[in-house]
Amino acid sequence: MDIDAFVAASKPSWDRLDDLVRRQRRLRGAEVDELVELYQRAATHLSIVRSGSSDALLIGRLSSLVARARAAVTGAHSPAWREVVRFFTVSFPVVAYRARRWWIGATVASLAVAYVVGVWVARDPGVQAMVGTPEEIRQLVEHDFADYYSENPAASFAGHVWLNNAWLAMQVVVWGILLGVFIPYILLQNALNVGLIGGLMHAHGKADVFWGLILPHGMLELTAVFLAAGAGMRLGWTVVDPGPRRRAEALAEQGRAVMSVALGLVVVLLVSGLIEAGVTPSGLPTWARISIGALAEALFLAYVIVFGRRAERANETGDIEHAPDLAPTS
């Protein structure tokens, strides 16, 4: 085969293909069809050139053209930064927003239990006696509770708190696959512990210490736990009531979406851990420490509401783009 004659005859179609690739975002319907046809032809030409010529420059140029045309025809992978931006502006906030009734319900129920238990413990000496001896309670309210936040270096403590809370949130979400039946139990245990300690601190005149140490980080931390619980219970309810879709499809979609919550909460709990390690035990006035915690909580809620509502109005579910079980098939 005369390779020079072949190149001369094929070059106009290669030039046309290169032009279409450069203008791929502005192509009309007929031009898109032409792009596909010329790409297929160029791929065949590349195979011919590779078998009939040793011209590395020609092979390299044609290989590059075919690769760019393939990306234009099949669609190039989204850059990593775009996926990160989509996660924090769409996937995570919309799943949190769509599950708001579940985690707001978990919040109200947990706080109600903690309040009832706290009042009960604070007002009933008999209950306090069942918790521990006077010496043990005195050690807790006067030393152990406050010392917990300052006995370790801030960086080490922040890392420990972050890993512990992130693991707890992940477990809560995963329990959703099993209908979420264990999630209320986990929330109940957490509410009982908070109510018990709060009641003991109030009963012994340490209410200011209790609220001054628990509120700065606790608002954001507990919101993250309640969000994980709400998303997990919503996933469990999908097993019971999948809606108009098949149960397996609904569970797969909701499961992928809920994993966005688990991953997003890793970041939220990191912020909470930093506040717990750096702000909670600091020498700042109590009002300043609580204000920092309240600001972090307000920013997070505003983020979920603004970005979540916008994504929901755009019919986003938090599922991955082009999910395999939702791809069209013939």
Rank of each mutant, 00 (worst) to 15 (best):
P125V: 09
A99W: 00
D18S: 15
A71R: 14
S260G: 14
G159Q: 13
N315L: 06
I48Q: 03
A155K: 13
A109C: 10
I104E: 10
G243A: 10
W237K: 12
V173I: 10
A252V: 05
A109Q: 08
G232P: 02
G236R: 02
D124L: 12
E221V: 08
A80P: 00
E253R: 06
F88A: 11
R70S: 11
I214D: 02
A30W: 09
F145Y: 14
E312D: 14
R50P: 03
P324F: 10
R16V: 03
P324G: 04
V95L: 12
A314F: 12
M130Q: 15
R86Y: 08
A166F: 12
P324V: 08
P328T: 05
L111F: 15
Y303P: 07
A250C: 09
A262M: 04
I104H: 09
E135N: 15
M130T: 12
L295D: 10
V306S: 13
L235D: 01
A155M: 09
V84T: 11
F210M: 03
R289P: 05
V94D: 04
R86W: 02
I275R: 00
E221F: 06
N164H: 09
V174W: 08
Q128V: 12
Y149W: 13
R256I: 11
V173Q: 06
L38V: 04
A56V: 13
P216Y: 15
L326V: 06
F300Q: 07
L178R: 10
A191P: 01
A250N: 10
Y97G: 02
R16W: 09
Y148F: 14
P12V: 12
L299E: 05
E253T: 05
P244N: 07
A298H: 09
L269K: 08
W103Q: 02
L213T: 00
F307V: 05
A191V: 03
M233K: 05
G318K: 02
L111V: 13
G293A: 08
E34C: 01
A203K: 03
E34Q: 11
A96F: 04
E253K: 07
R100Y: 04
W120N: 10
D2H: 13
L251Q: 02
V127F: 10
A257H: 04
P125H: 15
F210S: 02
H160R: 10
P134M: 15
G243F: 13
W81G: 02
V258W: 00
W120I: 08
I137R: 15
Y303R: 11
L265R: 01
V174L: 12
L301F: 09
P79C: 13
S63K: 06
S63L: 03
L38M: 02
G236L: 09
A42S: 13
G232I: 01
S54K: 12
M259H: 11
G180P: 07
Y148V: 01
L220H: 00
L284K: 03
P328Q: 09
H45S: 14
V194S: 05
T280D: 08
S64I: 06
A56I: 05
T238F: 04
A9R: 13
H160S: 10
